[in-house]
């Protein structure tokens, strides 16, 4: 659908049904889409439209009932490795300092896992740099519960990024934050993406957030979720808060809003 070259993530007529027999509910119906390497995709839709299901399918945490998911040219059959994930709930470990929380993926994902012991200092340096780049430079030694909600969420994003995954899955990571903090984190997220150019899938119900961050916005219908529109966002980067007041931006948000109202009413 978008981008050039071979798609990095590809969904071919993917469907997911929860439960069995009479209790079976169709969560996602016939989703087909492809995402290019380095593309930032946002998925929006009314609540319960299978947005989060889509995330679990792409990462292989859940097998599809029908259809196929391909990532990096390979069919997904189990949890794929080297994915960065960030959820609305920061799920930082309260017994680890912020720095050690961000270190976690390095202790698990290869090749870092086998190198960690030998190159500990270099890795710690890398963590500190990443923390500093999101404004948490002085907070590495603090415990997560000593941080504010916005700071916890920044640490969460750092944890998802530290092992330099090619694919980032963001499931409403800014959903629980106040409006100011949220907008601040959009900018930080965009900066990180511009530097590293990972492929990102962001699930959100905030249309402004989708329009701010994404190259492509996928609009889904209410349950059973269907992809009803794919919208390109061609606004220049880096986008700033000023961008969100420009007519082109407002128009995109307006159009999405209208589309979602239609499907909610339907």
């Amino acid at each position: 659908m978008t981008g050039t070259g071979t798609p990095f993530v590809e969904l071919r007529q993917v469907a997911l049904t929860y439960g069995e027999g009479r209790d079976a509910t169709l969560a996602l119906a016939e989703a087909t889409m492809s995402i290019a390497q380095g593309e930032f995709v946002a998925v929006v839709g009314p609540s319960g439209c299978g947005k989060s299901t889509l995330m679990k399918l792409v990462t292989g945490l859940m097998p599809p009932s029908r259809g196929e998911v391909h990532v990096a040219g390979q069919k997904v059959t189990g949890p794929i490795k080297g994915v960065g994930m960030a959820f609305q709930n920061p799920t930082l470990m309260p017994w680890r300092t912020t720095r050690d929380n961000v270190m976690l993926p390095l202790e698990i994902a290869q090749p870092h896992r086998s190198r960690l012991r030998a190159e500990k200092a270099a890795y710690i340096d890398r963590v500190e740099k990443l923390l500093a780049s999101v404004g948490l430079g002085e907070f590495g030694a603090k415990f997560p519960w000593q941080l504010s909600g916005g700071m916890q969420q920044r640490a969460n994003v750092c944890r998802a990024l530290i092992h330099e995954p090619q694919l980032m899955m963001l499931d409403e990571p800014f959903g629980a934050l106040d409006a100011f903090t949220r907008e601040e984190l959009w900018a930080i997220m965009q900066d990180l993406w511009l530097q590293r150019r990972f492929t990102a899938i962001l699930v959100t119900h905030d249309l402004r957030e989708a329009a701010f961050l994404a190259d492509t916005i996928v609009v889904m219908s209410k349950r059973p979720g269907r992809i009803i529109q794919i919208k390109r966002v061609d606004l220049p980067r880096p986008r700033t808060l000023e961008t969100t007041f420009e007519p082109a931006f407002v128009e995109i948000v307006h159009e999405l809003r209208e589309r979602i109202s239609e499907v909610r009413a339907a």
């Binding site: 949890p79 490795k81 080297g82 994915v83 960065g84 994930m85 698990i108 994902a109 899955m169």
Partner: peptide, 9 residues
């Protein structure tokens, strides 16, 4: 938390 860890392998 489980999902985060599983997707790291």
């Amino acid at each position: 938390m489980r999902d985060v860890l599983r997707s790291l392998g």
